[in-house]
Amino acid sequence: MSAAPDPATVDPAAAAGALALGDDALVLSHRLAEWTGHAPVLEEEVALANIALDLLGQARTLLSLVGDEDELAFLREERAFRNVQLVEQPNGDFAQTIARQLYFSVYQELLYGQLAAGGEAAPLAPLAAKAVKEVAYHRDHAEQWTLRLGDGTETSHARMRAGLDALWRYTGELFRPVEGLAVDWAGLEAAWLETVGGVLERATLTLPEGPRATGWSAGGGREGVHTEPFGRMLAEMQHLHRSHPGASW
């Protein structure tokens, strides 16, 4: 990447923060790209691919702050990834993909909003200020579909409900403090609950119940602990680069 600052000039704490956010964006981008060729309708396929490309762009900028983006994306082992477990969860049906996107995009929009407000001195502020506009669109897309699926047919409501419930236990991890990010995590979580709850209410749904920030809920992605499907996703994502090192189009 040409525009990115030299990784050597980024302080280690900021690099750790950039790695966590960059891995979030990279992994979710790959998951969304898996819909290509499989989306319910052509228009929706383009929408999901657009979101995936936005996230890939964010990942490239963030990982370039840490080191060589290709090495980081394609040559790290599973335990070296710092993304939250939410983004690595399989797509499931379309409703589950939308549930994952709603949870994550609301989080990302609020998080980038805080980082952007950090001012010029904050290393991630310029990226966050640019990305927050993209993410606002992702959130809107997920919101629109949540309203239609939740307040649609009996089947769509049940599937949206199931998608939201299945991913709920991965949402507590989003608000564990990340080294190098100056963020009001408690405020972030309160705003996230309010926003997601508001969308679900309009969609005739409610916030799921159940553990999301206890010993029984999921977490550990930021420490390199990942769920089983992530290994298979990485194998697919990395095999080309590992089989043909340095290959280019």
Binding site: H38, A39, P40, V41, L42, E43, E44, N91, D93, F94, A95, T97, L149, G152, T153, T155, S156, R159
Partner: peptide, 12 residues
């Protein structure tokens, strides 16, 4: 294989 049509409720 994903049965993706059901998620959107209807085909295009």
């Amino acid at each position: 294989p994903r049965g993706a049509d059901a998620g959107a409720g209807a085909a295009t």
